[in-house]
Design a protein around this nucleic acid. Sequence first.
DNA 1: ACAGAAGCTTA
DNA 2: GTAAGCTTCTGTT
Length: 976
Amino acid sequence: MKKGDHLFLIDGSGYIFRAYHALPPLTRKSDGLPVGAVSGFCNMLWKLMQDARNTDVGIVPTHFAVIFDYSSKTFRNDLYPEYKANRSAPPEDLIPQFGLIRQATRAFNLPCVEMEGFEADDLIATYCRLACEAGGDTTIISSDKDLMQLVGETVGMYDPMKDRQIGIPEVVEKWGVPPEKMIDLQALTGDSVDNVPGVPGIGPKTAAQLLEQFGDLDELLARAGEIKQEKRRESIIANADKARISRQLVTLKNDVPVAEGLDDFVLHAPDGPKLIGFLKTMEFTSLTRRVAEATGTEAGDVQAIAVPVERADNAHGPDVGAGTPPVARAAEIETTETPKQGDTPSLLAALRLERAATAKIDTSAYEGIRDIATLKAWVAEAREAGIAAFDVRATSTDPMQAELIGLAMATAPGRAGYIPFAHKSGNGDLLGGGMLENQIPLREALAVLKPLFEDRSVLKIAQNLKYDLVIMSRYGIDVAPFDDTMLISYVLDAGTPHGHGMDALADKWLGHKPLQLKDVTGSGKSSVGFDQVDIDRATAHAAEDADVTLRLWLVLKPRLAAKGLVSVYERLERPLVPVLARMEQRGISVDRQILSRLSGELAQGAARLEEEIYLLIGERINIGSPKQLGDILFGRMGLPGGSKTKTGQWSTSAQLLEDLAAEGHELPRKIVDWRQLTKLKSTYTDALPGFVNPDTKRVHTSYALAATTTGRLSSSDPNLQNIPVRTAEGRKIRTAFITDKSLRLVSADYSQIELRVLAHVAEIPQLRQAFADGADIHAITASEMFNVPVEGMPSEVRRRAKAINFGIIYGISAFGLANQLSIPREEASAYIKKYFERFPGIRDYIEETKAYAREHGFVETIFGRRIHYPDIRSSNPSLRAFNERASINARLQGTAADIIRRAMIRMEEALDKAKLSARMLLQVHDELIFETVEVEVEATIPVVRHVMENAAMPAVSMSVPLHVDARAANNWDEAH
DNA sequence: ACAGAAGCTTA
DNA sequence: GTAAGCTTCTGTT
């Protein structure tokens, strides 16, 4: 570069966001790919380059580069961790455009410049300095105030959207200070968007005036005592440190060790065919025409090129792969719904399905990523594509104990690789095998992967992502943004016969059966850990999973929009993933001594009962065997009332034994008691200590988001949602769930949430009133049904009404109610009839639900969650009736589940905002359990209650108030 | 070694 | 009558 040359630097990242928000949304016609920002970008580049050839304009660039941010984490985060911390992920439809804009830049024959650890602004500052030193001029294509500090005699800015030049006078006019004081001004005002603190109470006007008065920031801070206005003076003195750190944050670094020099930016004429190929692919018809004219290219001769993101342009592409012909397949899917003609998401869904299902899966085509250079190339490729499916391989299915073995990544269908970190040679002698050659050491690999996994412009996709999230978090990586194919499937298809596991989804959508873990590790006694699998086989297996995950995403994601389920996914599913990941990581403290003592007591009690039982039956059978027990009780001893299970065995259910005990038989009572003690011992007091994590000394359950049909969570390993509470004996187990001395457990649970949901959705005036009054709902029900006053009501009357209320929630049947109340079926029938007479709205609700389910094959919660009942039209009456009851229950249980999900999603921020340190640990369907310091208990409870009671708002304003009870104690028993 | 049934725990 | 998960026993692979 020499004197007279002119460098154009485009702030690519800044432009993307501005164009996205400023320009009308635009999607590629053929498939709905969002391209608004790309279109704006291409038009701007073209205009700038046209101007470059038109010497009349005055400014003629000789050098040209587009600068991008690399990742969200830069050296500024080391200075100030909160820097840009409250930035949220970019909008859904912007994410794929980041990669496209880089491609656009290259199509224009322009250099794309970015560097890890630095913002685009730092690179721009550096190149400005270099150009200045070489005697050239610079124009920065941006209107960002953060760049205004660079404006000077040889550096100007240009806002392409407003067609406005920004020089020294414009900066002074806008901010009241010359460019060289912009840094001090920004240090004072701060920036709420980037989380630069600044001095509270000082805005641009005040800052400019102060700088005018004192000259610069150092002088101002030194002489702050001279400021007349009291508030202002105090604030500046108190926040001098914040101003200093802010100055560091806003000062651009102009000595970045850049890889490309200015000579690499010499402007070349555009390559017509290359550029037109890209523009055609994007379907920018008018720009394509203009470029064709200007470059003298015949647009018709140019083929649209393949673009790594969303290659739906290739719909008639490779017709390989066996099975159903693609067209028939796509058609088959859409006939199950009612697609609207020209409905773009539906069309996209069909196209995606066809592509992903037909492009052959070849496990031998995956790449082993064995050195840093290759890994870096893959990372670059993922950034280009804007999406990356990944799959973690680790030593354990428990993410709290798993050590990373390797990681697979896919960037496009068929394009996948596997990075081995820690595979060992398979010889299983005592010393174990040594580490295999040609792997990338974990630390080095993670250093390269971390910026990608945290890059807000690259969407990370996984199947059951929470597992990977917990592991990555333990390695210091916060994965965002992300999609989870399992959850997308769950939102689309809860209740359908196929599950949401990878194998089921691959089979259903891709007609493909992926390699099984067992096929590479072996099974049973001869099985080996995944780290003992040789790297080629591991690559085939893991990379295939990443490839399949990417294809599933391509197929499933557009279906969310096509079916109007985006908001369920975005508001009830995806945001819960990191919340649950954190809850699982926190775990809960369990006192092993208490459990061990209880185990001893239970063993003694059970042994005593065992002896008594043996004495009564005269032999030492296995009491735990229902078969042996039934044969003795009803066969040899000939007890009355025996009934058979469906396999023809004598039934020995607790209910039946209780009935016999009530008739005065001694043995059944002892058996029931023995079962209770052994149940408590084996399932809880003996099993729980085995779940204490050796590192954290706490118990970390695993929550499944996609395991139930209704939207509830489930808990396993261990299940902490079925810890005993009903009997005094069982409750003792809860005393083992404890906190440290200065901490407390806070338990907050919704009171009667499902009945409240019923009163709301079925619009039952008496029930709404009763809940509004805070009345005893079962007593009110009884009073309405039996015409008895609530005052002095016999407990039996209330009990029956309560059973009916619960029965309604479960999709009542006379058979079930009769069983529950131990009354004849005719009597139960009469109760139900009476109930419907008093609450006709509930009968209507039930009938409407059944009719809706029958018509659509699914029901919905009030938040739009869809639950399918494919057997609702079965000709089998009992199967049909079962589906009817389940669908009635699903609307209520599912709505309640959605409400607590919403509360959980909002809870952490609400606690943060209230400056409370409480940490959410557990969820038990209608209850949340927190751990907090004792001194904050009183402040925490109202915050928790407020979030939970208002969780339906603003999406739904319920006609019945939600009520939350909350208590704190040293253990779960007393807190509940 | 695994799968299903029976039984029991929770909301 | 709804929704789950875990343990034990039992019979099959």
